[in-house]
Design a protein around this nucleic acid. Structure first.
Lengths: 250, 250
DNA sequence: TCATGAGGTAATGTATACAATCAGTATCCA
DNA sequence: TGGATACTGATTGTATACATTACCTCATGA
């Protein structure tokens, strides 16, 4: 009953989009595979019109690729595509940080950022970080990055960063859970948090170049984690969208 | 007869998208105005399904904004939004140039770029540059930027740059025609072409930082032109999308 | 045995009918 | 007179029927 209410509370288009996205990221649909509308209609329960709408949106999101003759297929990504996507996201976040530093931010705007950082500190202080703490870190980290982006006060840039972060492995928190299985996990989080502190310090002191550089380096840390996580595939279930990555064997 | 053939050669969705885009950019639809589907059906001649498809695509393109209660409205841009969009495009092109420099490009890949530059040289050599030459410049400049972007050999980055350039005033050639009416026109083109030469030189010498910096500066030249063109509105008809720009009086 | 073409099937593209929701207005009650 | 509510119109969201196109298969010929 409650489930049906929830179902009705959002549009069929959104529901279809969520369902299809989950299927793609979880590997239910293989890269290169054509997505049949009728099949999607069956699995999502929506009719063809909202399904088509959802497919268009997923294409814009970057998970699907249009087939010239019509229809869509699941996109495949090389490891390099992903590294480049992370670098790109870092470059845009660097621009946002520089804008924030150059244009100045009020104490009031910084407050939620600092609070966020304090909360993260509370988490990374634990020595063996629990899985729950990792989960909490993911949420706080996403929040920090979103707040930082908004400090740029540039709607076009915010929009573009959101779009660049839409791919799960390009997003700031895409690999954090996958890291949790790594021995280097704790150290990586400490470094990341230090970078968080530094970028805020740079913005406060209006050091635009420094703020930009540190955000780029911050993204490179994520790229490093990605490589570690890909080599150490024991916990591949923690990495959404792993199924989309072309391995050398393909 | 030929017209009907052309009409049939592309889908109704694409036709509706082109028609609506033209209407938006030419000011036929005012910023903030809600776009009625039925009205769009009448003006485009397509039925509601392709019209809705076109509206979704135009939203992703950045020209429309979704209204929470449903439907779409024409987006409005501040002058700063546009300057930021240009800076963002320049930042991404800078990343592409750096990738090209760092990863290296073959002589064969550079050949079309250099040919493009030679053709541009032929145009800017004229002292009072004719309107036709300006037109040719726009095409060659767009070609140069596209080729340069491709030198990065990074599909995700190419895709993102294309998306960042979708807004007409953010595109590399968005303001060139508007410049043609300015007294500084010739000088600006000479400087721009010099920057084109420098970025290719930097890429050849694998100077990544230099290639990146020059592309950023190149975009700032475009931003300068924008400001000049906006102050000097005598030839505002040369500036597509001018109708979307919020002035201080709004 | 391979290539080419014709036919059929299954997919997507389009149009339209129907349902649901939102906005605006007018009326009624306090 | 002000506010709230119910009603009406219009607009968007959804489903489905129809048209068209692409792809696959099979057969026929070289």
């Amino acid at each position: 009953m409650a489930e049906r209410d929830i179902d009705r509370s959002v549009s069929q288009t959104v529901r279809a989009q969520l369902t299809l996205r989950d299927m793609i990221l979880s590997g239910g649909l293989r890269p290169g595979e054509r997505i049949s509308e009728l099949q999607a209609v069956e699995t999502t329960g929506a009719s063809r019109t909202p399904v088509r709408m959802a497919l268009v949106r997923l294409e814009e999101e970057g998970l699907l690729e249009a087939i010239p003759s019509g229809g869509f297929m699941v996109k495949a990504f090389s490891e390099r595509d992903i590294v480049d996507s992370i670098e790109m996201r870092g470059t845009l976040e660097g621009l946002a940080a520089r804008f924030a530093a150059e244009r100045g931010v009020s104490v009031r705007d910084l407050e939620p950022l600092k609070q966020c950082l304090d909360e993260i500190d509370g988490l990374v202080r634990q020595d063996p970080i629990s899985v729950e703490a990792f989960s909490a870190y993911v949420a706080l980290n996403a929040r920090f990055h979103a707040l930082l982006t908004e400090l740029s006060r540039s709607p076009p840039l915010i929009r573009q960063i959101d779009r660049a972060s839409a791919l799960p492995f390009a997003s700031p928190s895409g690999f954090v859970m996958a890291q949790s299985a790594l021995p280097e996990a704790h150290q990586i989080l400490l470094i990341a948090q230090d970078q968080h502190r530094i970028v805020i310090d740079a913005i406060e002191n209006r050091e635009g170049a420094r703020a930009e550089a540190i955000m780029r380096e911050h993204a490179r840390l994520a790229a490093r984690n990605l490589r570690l996580a890909l080599r150490n595939k024991t916990h591949s279930d923690l990495l959404p969208g792993l199924a989309l990555i072309k391995t050398a064997s393909d």
